[in-house]
Design a protein around this nucleic acid. Sequence first.
DNA 1: TTGCAGTGTGCGGATTTCGCAGGACGCGGG
DNA 2: CCCGCGTCCTGCGAAATCCGCACACTGCAA
Lengths: 172, 172
Amino acid sequence: MHSEGVASRSTEHRDSARESRSGTPQLDAVSLAIIEQLQEDGRRPYAAIGKAVGLSEAAVRQRVQKLLDQGVMQIVAVTDPLTVGFRRQAMVGVHVEGDVDGVADALSAMSEVEYVVMTAGSFDVLAEIVCEDDDHLLDVINRRIRALPGVRSTESFVYLKLKKQTYMWGTR
Amino acid sequence: MHSEGVASRSTEHRDSARESRSGTPQLDAVSLAIIEQLQEDGRRPYAAIGKAVGLSEAAVRQRVQKLLDQGVMQIVAVTDPLTVGFRRQAMVGVHVEGDVDGVADALSAMSEVEYVVMTAGSFDVLAEIVCEDDDHLLDVINRRIRALPGVRSTESFVYLKLKKQTYMWGTR
DNA sequence: TTGCAGTGTGCGGATTTCGCAGGACGCGGG
DNA sequence: CCCGCGTCCTGCGAAATCCGCACACTGCAA
């Protein structure tokens, strides 16, 4: 009855597996499968997940807790701020000279900034910001971001309409 | 004991409230408060949410279900694909001539595309894509996206490192 | 007024979550 | 070899949560 489990688990070394340069512990196939289940429905019961991945309810619960503690994943409600209400949203591309990582950290520290990623391309950093209104948006971009040491210039893309937003890279 | 509830609810018309141009029903303060709770923890029990927003457990449950059904919010596990494993990720800025909406829809239809937003700025559309590897990424950008009718040109920003990712626009 | 749709409440019963006591396994030291 | 240790899994009750349902209240329109 357990035969359709995702991983055999009996002949593999779970944790000794390769580990990327960063300090993040690599995940095995079972944890990936658990994440996929929760990408479909963040409130799915542990027992249902266990049946899908071939594990007991308690085991799934322990793994999910660990993934949460490690910061590998988070279970949250996501919305389109523009749809939910008033508020201005924009993506800001930043050109940096010098300490890119420092600028990214400074951006991350701002509460209006929801998303920060370092990129290879004409921008060094992309940051998504959510504001109350145009004044607030202007203040964040011109007063705060452009004032950061190392920021050479920025380019803004004010959001007009969100067309798609999913989190199911696993299930394809 | 109920006195610290978020909205008085007794003297306001809940649904007759203003409605944005789009077909999305506007949310009242209580639903906003519920969403905020779930932005902190997508698995928070209905009873706990009810206590926080001043509603019964059953009422919270009905509202959450409706928000889910309406597509106003989704409760899901989110991760950083780069951290979770192999895979290439990038943001693509698209210059469009003509039917911007059509291009955005076409992008949304692609499974590799996780996020699509129409913007005001030098790009007409921004799209975030998640791929297996470089070959896959190249194929999606050069073969599929650039081939879409109306796409004049694109610019790619390959992700090097995700620095921040939150969903708590409500709680500030 | 009457009927109806939408929303909230209270209440059991089914389900799920939670904590904890083992048991199995791999690994390294004595 | 075998013993201790850490990790992960399983199997339980007990407690908490989820769920469906009947009913009350409100605003609105026929």
